[in-house]
Amino acid sequence: MMAPRKRSLVQEGVLGILLIATLAIAAWLDGPDGAFISPATQLELSTHIFDLAILALPMTLIIITGGIDLSVGSTMALSAVTLGMLYEAGTPIWIAGFVAIIVGTLAGAINGIFVARVGVHPLIVTLASMALYRGLAEGISLARPISGFPDGLQRLGGGTFAGVPISGMIFAAAAIGCMLLTARTVAGRWIYGIGDNERAASYAGIPIARTKLWLYSLSGTAAGVAALIAVGRRNTAKADIGSGIELEVITAVVLGGTSIFGGRGGILGTILGVALIHEVREFVSWHWQDDKLILIVIGVILIGSVLLNNLASRSRV
């Protein structure tokens, strides 16, 4: 089996170095206290990122096929509102959660149908459904917040099991699943094949439409799960959940070396990308307490890492 990911290991190396550098600077600035870099702090701060991290996994796969999904944040809102409305109406939380994930999956599947079966460009479909799904969430809930979720859901968002955040475990399981999918399965090869050359993939008999449909549905599922985590973390379900998260997710994925043109990239890069963004964000805010600085630093890292990568691998066109 041909390894389809060509240059991304270079990017992963760059990211690894940046990540270690960030942590080193953090440790140095921490002084003797070691508060930021201490495992307890790190574990607790990590709960801020797992919803984004979970969204980044299917996004990576979709971008590898040459697509994009801008609607993940809005799908999250739709799932969150579904969860809240059902729970408020007296549905047991686990059923409400299950239905919320189903709703997310369906929202993703609708994107998938338009992209894969109708043949509309994913950017256009998801630009439209980004407005549509958030609008539905606002309409269904009348923009009301819903609160008072049971402990179980709150633990899912911010709680720990044996010291490890539960949302982190969900992410780890999903990440390993996606790694196995890309590295070990035929479907994984299809994903890279579609992204590398869709026409060729079609001639080779790869079920392009079905693969895409599954991927966009998976993205919806992930949005549903991320919604449960985000709702649980703050004990609030509201139609503004996840607004703007789509750009942060895409930033993490492309920072992780997945090519926006498709065919190249991987889950490991995305994990590193997410980790780097998370660490930089937390660390800058921890030490300099200035929100606008984070914007600048993340932007510079995003552009800088690709420039660095281009220097490191001159062969890339």
Partner: peptide, 27 residues
């Protein structure tokens, strides 16, 4: 220049600029 000479894909370069410019504006 970032996109042509620097060979940074346009969506990455401009996604980075999106946050950088906003940060500078706030400053």
């Amino acid at each position: 220049l970032l996109i042509t000479i620097g060979r940074v894909p346009s969506i990455i370069a401009t996604l980075g600029m999106l946050t950088i410019l906003r940060g500078i504006t706030e400053m």
